[in-house]
């Protein structure tokens, strides 16, 4: 141990003490969360929710892209035939197992699924963590429906490609969505059609695999990926 080392150490200790003393004078950054509402940053991924227009209609086209995209298969979708077209009947998301990976949102070609910054979902059992379409719509309404006297503004779809704020904002794409958006009817959230929230028996919903087979959906994304893989 050299004396010079001790001198150096003393200087460094004094510097360190100065830093920690300075920190004490600064304002604490503590968030008094349960007392004051917590804020989350833009782009925070909470729960994927279904876009429900004020008319009560869902912009989801039942294309099943999200069902296939989800890496753990927690999205389940029931379809019905309306006007000889497939439409979404019930949507089931087991949010307790959700990774917040955003893949379902990115895969949706109609901006019918967006991430809501909801984070207070804790519960004592698993059942409340299974969200049906009306629950998801309620969450959507909570975060994205206009306040009194505001225009309906569709949320940003945060994807890896368009991560800039505001990217992807706009009306939902697709013919049905455009049509619905023009009819300016207001409804209470979650009240639009179908059974009341959470009442659909689980057995009635079609599991992802069988739904895919039953509807005979082609897999455009899969083939695209394969082509890209061959090209590379």
């Amino acid at each position: 141990m050299k004396v010079a080392d001790i001198g150096k150490a003393a200087v460094n200790i004094a510097k360190g003490l100065g830093v920690t003393f300075g920190e004490q004078l600064k304002k604490p950054i503590t968030n008094f969360y349960p007392d004051t509402p917590a804020t989350v940053k833009d782009g925070y991924r909470g729960v994927p929710v279904l876009v429900q227009l004020p008319t009560g209609e869902f912009t989801c086209t039942a294309c099943m892209a999200c069902v296939r995209a989800c890496p753990i298969g927690i999205i389940q979708l029931d379809t019905v035939m309306v006007d000889r077209k497939r439409a979404m009947d019930e949507f089931r998301l087991e949010v307790g197992r959700c990774l917040q990976c955003n893949l379902c949102v990115e895969s949706c070609n109609f901006d019918a699924l967006v991430m809501a910054p909801e984070f207070e979902l804790a519960s004592y059992t698993r059942e409340p963590l299974v969200l049906y379409k009306n629950d998801l719509a309620k969450l959507y309404a909570k975060y994205f429906w206009p306040k009194e006297g505001e225009e309906h503004h569709f949320p940003a779809r945060v994807t890896s490609k368009h991560h800039a704020p505001g990217a992807g904002t706009g009306t939902p794409r697709g013919p049905r969505a455009a049509k619905i958006a023009q009819t300016g009817v207001t409804l209470t959230p979650g009240g639009g059609g179908g059974e009341p929230a959470g009442k659909t028996p689980v057995g009635a919903s079609v599991p992802a695999e069988s739904a895919r087979e039953a509807t005979g959906t082609t897999r455009p994304q899969d083939t695209g990926a394969q082509k890209a893989g061959e090209g590379a």
């Binding site: 920690t20 920190e23 004490q24 604490p28 950054i29 503590t30």
Partner: peptide, 10 residues
């Protein structure tokens, strides 16, 4: 309290 303030907690 002191440890909190040094870490900018309360």
């Amino acid at each position: 309290k002191v440890s909190g303030r040094i870490q900018r907690r309360i």
